[in-house]
Simulated assay, not measured.
Amino acid sequence: MTATPTDWIEHRRAGDRELLGWLRLEDDGAVAIDRLGRTASGVLPWDEAEAVLDERGIGWLADLWELELDGRPVRVRLREVSTERVVVTYDDHGDVHTKVDAIELPFPAPATLRPFGGDRHVLDPLR
């Protein structure tokens, strides 16, 4: 089980208290860290680092992603994001009848997982 570093301070959305990420004190400010455990800002004043996470929210986690597998990017969707692991599945293009395998990644998520950079309207014929 992976735990967040002890110097990360949770930042939650006002209202429903959903976890948006963490803040890490550095120098005379704070660094925003997103839900994937990745740095989302440079050193900023505390309130500005909070604003980075507030503006990002969590909706971006539902976007289309790509994962580098065997030297080529494949379309994936995030299925689980926790401080223990990040689980992705191949993008099933909304087909509820498709069985998709889960791929477990460590937390923080590796750099091989990134926002999808291709044309989201073109199906990947190689998958």
Rank of each mutant, 00 (worst) to 15 (best):
Met1Gly: 13
Met1Pro: 11
Thr2Pro: 09
Thr2Ile: 11
Thr4His: 14
Thr4Ala: 15
Pro5His: 11
Thr6Glu: 14
Glu10Asn: 08
Arg12Val: 12
Gly15Trp: 07
Gly15Phe: 05
Gly15Cys: 10
Arg17Val: 07
Glu18Met: 06
Leu19Val: 12
Leu19Phe: 09
Leu20Trp: 12
Leu20His: 11
Gly21Glu: 06
Arg24Ile: 11
Glu26Trp: 13
Asp27Ile: 03
Asp27Cys: 10
Gly29Ala: 07
Gly29Val: 10
Ala30Gly: 09
Ile33Cys: 10
Asp34Cys: 05
Arg35Phe: 05
Leu36Cys: 04
Gly37Pro: 15
Arg38Glu: 13
Arg38Ala: 11
Thr39Glu: 09
Thr39Gln: 14
Ala40Met: 05
Leu44Thr: 04
Leu44Ala: 04
Leu44Met: 12
Glu48Val: 06
Glu48Asp: 08
Ala49Asp: 08
Glu50Ala: 15
Glu50Ile: 14
Ala51Met: 15
Val52Arg: 05
Leu53Pro: 07
Leu53Trp: 03
Leu53Asn: 09
Asp54Gly: 08
Glu55Ile: 10
Ile58Ser: 08
Gly59Lys: 08
Trp60Val: 08
Ala62Phe: 02
Asp63Glu: 13
Leu64Met: 03
Glu66Ala: 04
Leu69Phe: 10
Arg72Gly: 03
Pro73Gly: 12
Pro73Thr: 14
Val74Gly: 00
Val74Asp: 00
Arg75Tyr: 00
Val76Lys: 00
Val76Ser: 01
Arg77Met: 06
Arg77Phe: 03
Leu78Lys: 02
Arg79Phe: 11
Arg79Cys: 14
Arg79Val: 14
Glu80Gln: 09
Val81Thr: 12
Glu84Lys: 07
Glu84Cys: 05
Val87Glu: 01
Val88Gln: 02
Thr89Asp: 07
Thr89Leu: 03
Asp91Pro: 01
Asp91Trp: 00
Asp91Ala: 01
Asp92Leu: 02
Gly94Thr: 02
Gly94Pro: 03
Asp95Pro: 04
His97Thr: 13
His97Asn: 14
His97Tyr: 06
Thr98Ile: 05
Thr98Cys: 08
Lys99His: 13
Lys99Val: 13
Asp101Pro: 01
Ala102Thr: 10
Ile103Pro: 03
Ile103Phe: 06
Phe107His: 14
Pro108Ser: 12
Pro108Arg: 10
Ala109Val: 12
Pro110Met: 15
Ala111Leu: 15
Ala111Tyr: 09
Ala111Phe: 11
Thr112Ala: 09
Leu113Thr: 07
Pro115Asn: 08
Pro115Leu: 14
Phe116Met: 01
Phe116Ser: 01
Gly117Ile: 02
Gly118Cys: 01
Asp119Gln: 01
Asp119Trp: 00
Arg120Gly: 13
His121Ser: 06
His121Cys: 03
His121Thr: 10
Val122Lys: 03
Val122Glu: 02
Asp124Phe: 00
Pro125Tyr: 00
Leu126Ser: 14
